[in-house]
Design a protein around this nucleic acid. Structure first.
Lengths: 107, 107
DNA sequence: GGGAAAAGTCGTCGATCGCCTACAAGTAAA
DNA sequence: TTTACTTGTAGGCGATCGACGACTTTTCCC
């Protein structure tokens, strides 16, 4: 069974900041984006991308969520392992809306 | 099909810091932990728990990952929706090890 | 090899972090 | 009511954030 995005089939368990960094880097490269380009799309500094891809543990949660949205990398919680998983609905991904909302979300 | 932990079957897609906060609060209450107790177990201040549960967007990624480990809330990336999911292995969760490692992980 | 783009590093800056102490409101039991 | 517990806030503190500009190193392509 072949999919448009092979990499999309890979499920990765996130345990450390580095796990996220690697996932981000992988995805960024598959999308042919430079760090600078991704930084622009996400609304962060390029150095921040560098740090996060290297596993920066003190990165802001909001920014991390934002970059995952930009990269269309879905994040899920709770679905414990070894279990049949049916998502609870369609995937109304509206990146711009998410990103824009996140922009002013700074509590 | 009944499971030991009903709530564990729920899969939640994380889009915003508040999503994480709600998941944390839910889980904490199911485990009968007070914010203070969870803060102690996680190694953070109680106010941080309060803020995160309310959707603090600038929370540190490392601490968020830590509290998810303490609560045994698995986080996954990439498994896009509506797909059969088979975890890639056992679940060698060793909270103390994870937490301790994270403690000095401050890049 | 040579040149350019990408990636990584450093230092400065204002803003915010997370921790602490303390206080107030709400609940529940005695 | 009194006591105890939980949750939410506020102010102060040292430490660090992330943006930015400038620089060096690495990677890529002709």
């Amino acid at each position: 069974m072949k999919l448009a995005f092979d990499d999309f089939r890979k499920i990765m368990r996130i345990r450390t900041p580095l796990d996220i960094g690697l996932a981000i880097r992988d995805r960024r490269r598959k999308l042919k984006l430079s760090q600078a380009a991704l930084a622009r799309k996400t609304g962060v500094g390029r150095q921040w991308i560098v740090a996060v891809e290297h596993g920066k543990s003190r990165a802001e949660l909001g920014l991390v969520l934002r970059i995952l949205s930009v990269l269309k990398l879905p994040l899920t919680i709770g679905p414990d392992h070894r279990r049949l998983v049916l998502d609870d609905g369609p995937d109304p991904v509206d990146i711009d809306a998410i990103v824009n909302a996140a922009r002013d979300d700074r509590t």
